[in-house]
Nucleic acid binder design. Structure first.
Lengths: 210, 210, 210, 210
DNA sequence: TATGAATGAGTGTTCATTCAT
DNA sequence: TATGAATGAACACTCATTCAT
């Protein structure tokens, strides 16, 4: 009857995990929402954790792909490249707003899954960021900054509005799901790149010209 | 043996909620860790959610207090004030690293508790931030920025290393529980304030002097 | 690859039923071990109980055949005949050690299957034993014993080492699967026939001659 | 409301395990029969296997006690002692007919539980039997027999009518739960002791006198 | 013959909660 | 205050079985 039970399960899982958290969502909730039998979850994903892993993997494959795409423009200079990566990630997060929130939240739980599955992705992600920052520092385009602390800040800015979408929406009346947000927030991160990451000379040159 | 069962319960709850999440922790786990009877949790906190609310309240009372303390130095100018607030929050997060992570994570769940309890704190928090930013904009000390987007960025930077302490520690080898981190990371946020929030004139004045 | 799926299923079933019991074995376990699709079990045996019945039937057909073969030597005298039957059964059990254990165990469950399928075999088996014992009693070759109580004892001796093969092997270090066991244990049952079943005169005659 | 939920659970479990086997009985069946909540089984016995272990332990403690009581009469001679042990065991089995059947059957499953819990009991049981048989062989009261094979036979005779109570009742019309059975069957085992275990001299002495 | 997808009922287990003591 | 016993609902998961292909 159903064309694709597996996809239906994943879609429902993402929505529910996003709203209620992984541990707060029962596989019966998911099955009901997807209009499939509970046993199908075990059939396709072995068990509930298998479904979680599938979500993680799906997310990070695409996420890393976006970073890699941006990274390829490193020849245009580190600033340009960093902005390209940033643009891709923000766009990806806006397109997958439910999945992103859920993954970002669940990442902070001390689970085996996080350690085993995600660490490889994290290492790759760090590699790309590090390469860009180091290039910028070497060419004096960037200030002589601590790479790791820059990564912390960049990732902070990239994730917070998606993770705390309730707060952002209800308290600040900023709506991450609207197209305006994507443009506007990207500009803000560009400001951070120009104002914090980039060296004064470069920064001023652009700024003073305007 | 225990002087205070109630405190023992709260302490254990914070540790376990932090590690396994609210839904991933059973009240029996908490009672065992606290070496008290399960029924005592109901006795002191009505039920599991009561314990959660207690944690939220405890956290936000102190958190807001830190903001208020910093806010009182607004007469020294908005930049100084913002840095004071930032310093207080970072210090508070470093001192309550388990509780902070757990609250920051659980905040992103769409639960009644979040909506009912936290919204008043959020509104207050926003009020203080807004006042500071608006003061800065009016006195031209800050660039003419969007207050809400600045709050997003500030809160991003203030919370990320505590929420994703696993990532920060294991992948970036940055240790939020060490005293060095507090000083260093505060400096980074000061850079953000100077480079992104503050107006070029002020920023350059300081920068060029050096 | 497999020549005969049906046989593969039966073989795997016997091994697994033997180890984990009927209720402890899933048809998926069986299908996996047999390297066939689960649905094939339904195809060949209707359902799980059909597979069980098939095992029962297979076992008892052969088992009864062994008894009948021995029974045909009744003209050589009841003692000789009883020993012949005993020899055949012990040999059959040794040859089908997994199936025997599983059937003997499952027989003791109060199930419909046992009642419906096995009762006819049991009645036939009892008929042969009874005929032999009655012949022995009539010709005074046997002591005037209670046939039913003799059947209990004979069946006890015939089944125990196979049913409790773990105990016999691990605790007593007697190995039912080795050829020595078959010869030795048969001798023991012959002793029981001579010492308990047979009349003193006959028994002593043999014994005193030696 | 219930005076003793734990005992009610054990009683119901024994009956149901006896009828349907361990794997064929659900803890819900047990709880319903015992008129208690399912969760109490976990409360008292940790889980279903804990309940099984409890049954095993209960059975074997008493069983071994009966053997020990009989063993204490070794000074009256090995034959007398063996008969005493036999009498105690048969009586114990008749008194605990459900538990006995279930234990004897489940013993034949290849489970961890059997190996871990029962092996110590088996070793003790073997020790007593061995002592008695060796005493009998040394004093020439017994024939020079293989102790282990004698244990197999003795245990066969002691357990079969209880394990296969359905067969014994329905096919042979022998009723193990009636008092007559206990006396009659004991006599049969005495015959085995006299006719198979004991030496001809001693055996004849008694037999010829009659 | 043989298979992968799918199902509904049932499994053992865990949960937060209640209550008499 | 503090506890052990007990509960009902929910949990993740497994089961034998069915069916279109």
């Amino acid at each position: 009857m159903r064309k694709n039970s597996k996809d239906a399960i994943v879609d429902s899982a993402i929505v529910l995990f996003n709203i209620k958290g992984f541990n707060g969502t029962s596989i019966r909730d998911i099955a009901n929402k997807a209009n499939v039998n509970v046993a199908n979850i075990a059939y396709y994903f072995q068990n509930k954790h298998g479904l979680l892993e599938y979500c993680y993997t799906t997310f990070f494959e695409s996420y890393l792909h976006e970073i890699e795409r941006g990274f390829n423009s490193l020849n245009k200079g580190p600033t340009e490249c960093l902005k390209e990566i940033t643009k891709n990630i923000i766009h990806f997060h806006c397109q997958n707003i439910h999945l992103t929130r859920f993954i970002l939240r669940e990442m902070s739980i001390d689970s085996q899954v996080v350690r085993e599955i995600m660490s490889t992705y994290f290492v790759k992600e760090r590699y790309y960021f590090k390469r860009v920052f180091e290039e910028g520092i070497q060419t004096k385009e960037y200030r002589p900054l601590s790479v790791n602390y820059m990564i912390i800040q960049l990732k902070s800015l990239l994730s917070m509005p998606f993770l705390n979408s309730y707060y952002v929406t209800e308290v600040l009346h900023v709506f991450p799901h609207e197209p305006y947000f994507e443009r506007k927030y990207l500009e803000e991160i560009y400001n951070w790149i120009d104002g914090v990451v980039c060296n004064m000379h470069f920064q001023n040159r652009d700024a003073l010209l305007v």
